[in-house]
Computed example of a mutant assay.
Amino acid sequence: MAPPKNQVAASRRQPQQAGFISSAYKGLRSPENSSLVKSVAIFAVAVTFLQTGFGEFLVPAF
């Protein structure tokens, strides 16, 4: 009788973990965070507008 052959267990590949940028992008694109992302974007646009020369049109002249 022949000796039993060594059986090698098939190794399962673990799914590759997502990088920081791709996981952050997926987090920003999720429907749960859409209102927060929109609020932050509008705030950033408002601050940028007020820092430019166009923001002075909103200041009343004395």
Rank of each mutant, 00 (worst) to 15 (best):
S35Q: 15
A9L: 09
F43G: 02
A9P: 02
L50V: 02
V45K: 05
E32L: 13
Q17W: 13
Q7E: 14
P4C: 01
L50F: 05
I21A: 12
G27R: 04
F54Y: 14
V8Q: 15
F62H: 09
L28H: 03
Q51C: 07
A24I: 07
E32K: 11
Q17I: 11
P4L: 04
T52I: 03
I21L: 14
A24N: 04
V37A: 01
S11A: 15
S22Q: 13
S39V: 12
L28A: 07
A46T: 14
I42K: 05
R29A: 12
F62V: 09
Q17F: 14
A18V: 11
A46D: 01
T52D: 03
P60G: 04
A61Y: 08
F49E: 01
I42H: 02
F54E: 10
V40Q: 04
L58K: 05
I42W: 01
T52Y: 00
V8Y: 14
S11I: 15
Q14G: 11
F43R: 00
G27H: 09
P15Q: 05
T48Q: 00
F49K: 00
P4D: 08
G19S: 12
V45Y: 02
L36F: 10
L36N: 13
M1G: 10
V40L: 13
A41S: 11
V8K: 14
V37K: 02
I21R: 11
L28D: 03
N33Q: 09
R29S: 05
A46E: 00
S22E: 15
S22L: 05
K38M: 03
Q7L: 10
E56D: 13
Q17H: 13
Q17M: 11
Q16M: 04
Y25K: 10
